[in-house]
Each structure stands twice: as structure tokens, then as C-alpha cells.
Design a protein around this nucleic acid. Structure first.
Length: 386
DNA sequence: AAAAGCACCAACCGCAGGTAT
DNA sequence: CATACCTGCGGTTGGTGCTTT
């Protein structure tokens, strides 16, 4: 493994970049692209090493950078992603268009960590500080999650004969999952190629003692908890030149527990609708003997998820299935560019009917604007203090 | 007004993994 | 297969400006 000897070979500049240097680098990359970074400084007439040029481009000169302060939504998303991914800044940055890993890392270290602590949340575990000590020796939950994950992996392998998805769980308590799609290896010696990484955050609300719809389970003591899925995915849309453009979307999906009713305490669900706009998502509810099954259509791809059997201890996952007519090449595109859904993760003991009063084919909308602030009072508190 | 402390952030450093030779 | 080189990532540092004493 080579070391970066480039900086020592010649007297190369270090430190802050001057506007003249920026201009040279920007002009060069705009005209020729960066190609091999190590040759960029020479071609651009810069006394810098390639690594320094690359960093300057990525973190500052790139035209698609957003700049400016982070919005509350961005901060919330970072917190949520950090809970799931830990210090994987590049993966976190990938979910925030226009932001760099360095920028996010700086924000985290200088600001968000502190905010969480002030709000009583441990920034490492994302659990209330009061619980961190108690929870440390309760590692037994993790193998349970791992075991369930392997079941999902099998399911995915069945769904895609030409590719397979591997699911790994994060090490956090609770149930967040990191979902990765990897290309099937030709043989056992070749490494699998990572096609896509999705996060699926499934936080039972009772982890923070908060029920978003403000109701208690009327049935009994073992409350089936609502689920909160959040994630980022891309949509494929045709642009003017009939090319498919991939557009990132962040969305969160709230799955109410069966005993919940829309706030504020309405007996009936909102009128059926077939639209989906902005941060709303259309959910179709349907009943089957196996339990709840939900699905929605978006940009001609079917995603589905559901707890296939509410009486089963543990969880099942369904992954969206590409239309049969598409060949595997297209299927692969869809895998890469659309949300990959996994997992409902509740243990339902004893078995309870899901949505007992909701008739089959009823549609309703769940508003999902700012998940952490509505779901997690700790975050809400600390952000509203600002 | 000056010094000390603090916060922010751009940039560096070292490492790991991939690829070319 | 070994070595050199390239790229990307995450941890860390050091400069700068603001605030406090």
C-alpha cells in the first residue's frame, strides 16, 4: 500500500486555498473533468498535491453544493441517520444532497452532539442518558435481531434470482436496519458488489414513551407499538431528452398500531383518497388471513411491506417486486434506484387483530413531515430550545 | 483594551481497500 | 504474487473569529 509521497517530493503548498488557486482548479475541472486526481495539479498549474485538489473540489468547489446553514429537517435527518449508521459520514452525506461528509461531521462534532446531550440523549447510542448505563449489559436483543435479519435475507434471495440483497443490522438497540443490495457473486471467490445501501429505521414509539397519536392501547398491557420507517430513495423520472433521471427523495412512513385512530380521537378514518403529494404517502390497507398487508404505487414501481402474520413472534419482511415483464437488467435498475423496503419488527404477543375496524380497500393518508420532532420528544425539546 | 477561552470549520493525516503494473 | 499507485474515508489539527473575563 502506497503512502502519499507526492507532498514530500516537491515543495507543495498546504493550508488554505487562495481565490486564484480555486479559480485554476475550477476552470480546469470544468473544462476537462478531474480524471486522475494525481495529474490534476500539474495540468491545472497548481502547486498542490492531487489529494488536496480532490478535497477542495469535493468540499468546496463542486457546483452542486448547497452551502449555508443546515435546516432543522437536515439536522433531524442527520441525527436519525447517525443513530442508524454511526460515524459513517459519507453514507450519511449520501442521503443529504448538496452536503459533504466533512460538513456533516463538523456539524455533528460541534453542534449536534452537544444538543443531544443537552436534551438528555446519549449521542453514541441515541438512547436517553438515564438508560444508557442500564442498557449496556443487555446485549441479548441483538442476536434476536440478527436472527430475524437472516430470515429477510433469505426472502430477498428468493425474490431476486439474479441478484441478492444482504441485510445487516446496525448495532443499535431497537430495530433500525441497514439494508444493502449486493450483486450476486459469480463464484464464491469474487467479492460481492455493493449496489445500494438503504436505511430503514424502525423505532417502536414506546422506546421514548411517546405515542404520536396520543392514545393508549385500549386492549391490554402488551401494546403493539406503531412503527416509523424512514429512508431515502431515488425515483426514476423521464427528463426532456427521454433519459431517466434519478432524483433523491427522503421520506418517512408511519405505520400506526392497530389500536390507533387518527388524531384527534376521531372515530372514523379520513375519507379515502388516491393522491399522494409532498410528504404525504398513500397507504392502502387490505386484509388477508395472514394479517395486514400494505402497498403503494409510486412511479410505476410497486413497493410492498407488511407483517405477514401478526400472530408470529418476530417479524417478516416483504421487498418490492419488480413487474414480471421487466427483465433482470431492468430489475437491477429498479433495485438501485428505488426504495428498498424491509421489515416490520414488532413482537406481537399475544396476537391481536390489525386494524380491526378498517374495511378492506380503505385508503388514508398519513402526514409525515418531520419525523423526529413529532416522534421524539427529546429532540423536539432540544430543538425548540434554540 | 487585552488576554483567555471557546466554537467553528477547512484542511491535513493516516489508513484501508482497490487497481494497475 | 508483490509492489506501487490511486482513491476515499474518518479522525484530528490548527487557524480564525467571536465571546467572555
Amino acid at each position: 500500500m502506497g503512502r502519499h509521497s507526492c507532498c514530500y517530493k516537491q515543495k507543495l503548498r498546504k493550508g488554505l486555498w487562495s481565490p486564484e488557486e480555486d479559480e485554476k482548479l475550477l476552470r480546469h475541472i470544468t473544462m476537462y473533468g478531474h480524471g486522475c486526481w494525481s495529474s490534476v495539479p500539474k495540468q491545472a498549474g497548481l502547486q498542490r498535491c492531487g489529494k488536496s485538489c480532490r478535497l477542495r473540489w469535493i468540499n468546496y468547489l463542486r457546483p452542486d453544493l448547497k452551502r449555508g446553514t443546515f435546516s432543522q429537517q437536515e439536522e433531524n435527518l442527520i441525527i436519525e441517520l447517525h443513530a442508524l449508521l454511526g460515524n459513517r459520514w459519507s453514507q450519511i452525506a449520501a442521503q443529504l444532497p448538496g452536503r459533504t461528509d466533512n460538513e456533516i461531521k463538523n456539524l455533528w462534532n460541534s453542534c449536534l452532539k452537544k444538543k443531544l446531550r443537552q436534551g438528555g440523549i446519549d449521542p453514541v447510542t441515541h438512547r436517553p442518558l438515564s438508560e444508557v448505563g442500564k442498557e449496556e449489559d443487555k446485549q441479548s436483543q441483538i442476536p434476536v435481531v440478527e436472527e430475524k435479519v437472516s430470515r429477510e435475507q433469505k426472502l430477498l434471495e428468493v425474490k431476486y434470482s439474479g441478484s441478492k440483497a444482504a441485510i445487516t443490522s446496525s448495532s443499535h438497540k431497537g430495530y433500525p436496519l441497514l439494508v444493502q443490495v449486493v450483486e450476486a457473486s459469480k463464484n464464491e471467490n469474487t467479492k460481492e458488489k455493493l449496489l445500494d445501501t438503504r436505511f430503514v429505521s424502525c423505532q417502536p414509539c414506546d422506546l421514548v414513551g411517546y405515542n404520536p397519536l396520543g392514545q393508549m392501547n385500549p386492549v391490554g398491557t402488551s401494546n403493539p407499538t406503531p412503527l416509523w420507517f424512514s429512508g431515502s430513495h431515488n425515483t426514476l423520472e423521464m427528463d426532456d431528452s427521454d433519459q431517466f433521471a434519478s432524483n433523491p427523495i427522503s421520506s418517512s412512513l408511519f405505520v400506526p398500531a392497530p389500536w390507533m385512530r387518527p388524531f384527534p380521537y376521531e372515530n372514523n378514518l379520513p375519507p379515502p383518497t388516491t393522491t399522494t403529494t409532498g410528504s404525504s404517502r398513500l397507504w392502502e390497507t387490505g386484509s388477508s388471513s395472514a394479517g395486514l398487508r400494505n402497498s403503494f404505487l409510486e412511479y410505476n414501481s410497486l413497493f410492498s411491506w407488511g407483517s405477514t402474520d401478526c400472530s408470529t413472534l418476530g417479524k417478516e419482511a416483504q421487498i418490492h417486486v419488480p413487474p414480471e415483464s421487466l427483465d433482470m437488467k431492468w430489475s437491477s435498475e429498479i433495485i438501485q434506484n428505488h426504495i428498498l423496503m424491509a421489515a416490520t419488527l414488532q413482537n406481537r404477543t399475544p396476537p391481536q387483530p390489525l386494524y380491526p375496524d378498517i374495511k378492506s380497500e380503505t385508503n388514508f393518508i398519513i402526514q409525515t413531515t418531520s419525523p423526529p420532532t413529532t416522534l421524539w420528544p427529546h429532540y423536539q425539546q432540544q430543538t425548540s430550545d434554540d
